[in-house]
Computed example of a mutant assay.
Amino acid sequence: MKLTVYLAGQIHDHWRDELKHHAKEHKLPIDFVGPMENHDRSDNIGEEILGKQPNAILKDEAASSFNNFRTTILMSKADVVIALFGEKYKQWNTAMDASAAVSLGKPLILIRPKELHHALKELSNKANIVVETPTQALQALSYVFE
């Protein structure tokens, strides 16, 4: 059996690379997908496809249409969603993706530091598993294969 795992969360550091590396080290049969990690491409995809937009709001609207399209396809094909909430960046996209996973009935592993317990209590209650680190999330996935 092979799993496809959607990695939801901020794209400003290398948490995905670390998780993928550890999964490979442990020889877990997992394919990882997720949001566009090239921030400039994500911000500009609407104009790349539709052409120059008249203002910043319409540029964002165009980009969000294509990013949501991509996310919907990849998440619907995923077997599991891991959503990481960190302390440094605003987490709006992570919250949206985690909520979409719940709505789609996708198994959800929520990674959040204990400092965010109160802010994420309702979403945490909807997740299948809540952990504090990417390593713990990978251990949860590893358990599936035992």
Rank of each mutant, 00 (worst) to 15 (best):
H14T: 12
L104T: 04
P29G: 11
H12I: 00
W92A: 15
T4L: 05
A62Q: 03
S124M: 02
H14M: 05
V81A: 12
E115L: 11
G51W: 01
L104C: 04
A63Q: 02
M36K: 09
Q139F: 08
E48N: 03
W15R: 07
K20G: 02
V102Y: 06
K27N: 15
A83L: 03
K121E: 13
I57G: 01
N93S: 13
H118C: 02
F69Q: 15
L141V: 05
E25V: 10
D43V: 03
P35R: 07
R16D: 13
Q139P: 00
D43S: 13
V5H: 03
G9P: 03
L84N: 11
V80N: 06
V144S: 11
I30E: 11
I73M: 14
R112P: 00
D97W: 02
N128M: 10
A62Y: 01
W15P: 05
K2E: 15
G9F: 01
D17Q: 12
M1H: 13
K27P: 01
E115M: 09
F32Q: 10
F145Q: 11
S65M: 09
L110H: 06
L120C: 08
A8Q: 03
H39P: 00
A8F: 00
M1I: 10
H26I: 00
S124A: 15
N128F: 04
L3A: 09
L19F: 11
E37Q: 12
A83R: 05
Y6Q: 09
K2T: 15
H12W: 05
A101S: 12
Q136H: 14
I49T: 03
D97K: 08
S42C: 06
D97R: 07
E87N: 14
R112V: 01
L7T: 05
N67S: 10
V131W: 04
F85D: 05
I82F: 07
A101N: 07
K121V: 06
P113M: 09
T94Q: 08
S99I: 00
I109S: 08
D60N: 06
R70N: 13
